[in-house]
Amino acid sequence: MREVVVVGAGLAGLSTAEALRGAGFDGTITLVGEEAHEPYSRPPLSKELLTGKGTGAGVRLRGPEELSALDLDLRLGVRALALHPGERAVELSDGSRVTGDSVVIATGGAARRPDTTLSGVHVLRTLDDAEALRAELAEHERITVVGAGFIGAEVAASARALGLEVTLIEAAATPLTRTVDPRVGSVLAELHRDNGVDLRVGVGVRALEGTGRVERVRLADDSTVEASLVVAGLGVNLNTGWLAGSGVELDAGDQAVRCDEHCATSLPGVYAAGDLASWPHPRYGGRTRLEHWTNAGEQAAVVAHNLLAGSGTRWAYQPVPYFWSDQYGAKVQLLGQATPADSVEIVHGSPESRKFVAFFGRAGMLVGVLGLRSTPKTMRYRKLLEQPTAWTDALAAAAP
């Protein structure tokens, strides 16, 4: 193998290139990125960059010298249009083609946008999104955020830090309903209210209304929220459309790239990493897909190893999922899975103090640990999730 094409210049794509070089690969690595920006980190976009504590240059994943040292054929500002499997060629939007002995798919996802042409309506996924939103935050006194997932929650917290009035709307009964059991989600709801956010749960959005610019948000119960600035945190659509007809197998629902336990796709020599990759995880059953910063880097390392393994031993990807979020000066950390859960137990602290560690159990086994303002205690339980641990054994390990 002398040529590798990595499609996607986010954390997963760049980390794959770095891991290949770190393992001694001295062939050609072509890194293709749709955005014109050099690879950057997304977590600061909803926090430091929005609040003015960071800059676009400050979110770069690597400095110019570090990037240069990787000796990449860097193709920025071009989009992948198609994958031609017979020649492992990727057709690009500038009319060129790049070929490789192997291809890594790391094109991530794009923010779902509301069906409206009104100005004043934003999403937050890219550096350009963040800079456009930051400019508007400086000109408004209030903001309405639709969707109380991690992005919506962080935007709400950043807006409050800037002194804006914030209305946060969530169709589910509690925030983070796709990630956290409602018994803990309800505590996170109170964290928003503690910090002066007008949180509306259990009601969806019917329409965004206005003339030219958004003026109000009409809810499913026909009530309205006056709003001249709206941020929609509605999740992502995975960037896998360019794979149509290539033979790369996709999941029927979200169109994620189906990988095996080694992160290999249905096409020989083609791997996937990052937000768009789904794979079988033996500890959680079924297929897993993670939109987490740590997953992108960890999965990329496995992909790079397996690309170079040849006839040697390939690694199976069996991580302990890890995610964190900073909201109102408090760190929320999640190890493993926190939903669905049969059992939830607060093992340290209390919800009332907004400082605790919670265990999540399913089918008699520990499956997740969540901490709020409890970093050291949360992280010490990672080892319980690295191997199967019975629920009763986990509770015993947490005893004072």
Rank of each mutant, 00 (worst) to 15 (best):
72 L>F: 07
400 P>A: 08
229 L>N: 07
258 R>C: 12
341 A>T: 02
221 D>M: 01
18 E>S: 13
321 P>E: 10
219 L>M: 04
155 V>H: 10
35 E>A: 13
270 V>T: 11
302 V>F: 10
226 E>F: 00
85 P>A: 15
267 L>C: 10
337 Q>M: 14
75 R>Y: 06
325 S>A: 11
223 S>H: 01
321 P>C: 10
362 R>T: 03
228 S>N: 09
179 T>Q: 15
171 A>V: 13
364 G>K: 09
386 E>K: 12
294 T>P: 05
215 E>W: 01
398 A>D: 05
286 G>I: 01
176 L>M: 14
262 H>M: 07
371 G>H: 10
303 V>G: 02
123 V>N: 02
313 T>L: 09
121 V>N: 03
87 E>T: 15
283 R>C: 07
365 M>I: 00
23 A>K: 13
1 M>Y: 05
337 Q>I: 01
157 A>K: 02
164 L>T: 03
12 A>V: 03
227 A>V: 00
387 Q>W: 00
199 L>I: 04
335 L>R: 05
293 W>P: 08
388 P>L: 00
166 V>D: 06
209 E>L: 14
170 E>G: 07
348 H>M: 03
60 R>T: 09
372 L>P: 12
194 D>S: 06
355 K>G: 05
254 D>G: 10
115 D>I: 00
178 R>V: 10
284 Y>I: 01
162 L>N: 05
251 D>L: 11
11 L>G: 04
256 A>L: 09
316 A>T: 14
181 D>T: 01
281 H>K: 05
185 G>S: 09
223 S>Y: 01
245 G>R: 09
247 G>V: 08
323 F>H: 08
49 L>N: 08
1 M>V: 13
286 G>K: 06
275 D>L: 09
73 D>V: 14
117 T>L: 05
112 R>Y: 05
140 H>C: 01
190 E>N: 08
202 G>Y: 08
245 G>H: 10
238 L>G: 08
386 E>V: 03
374 S>A: 15
266 S>I: 05
57 A>F: 02
42 R>H: 09
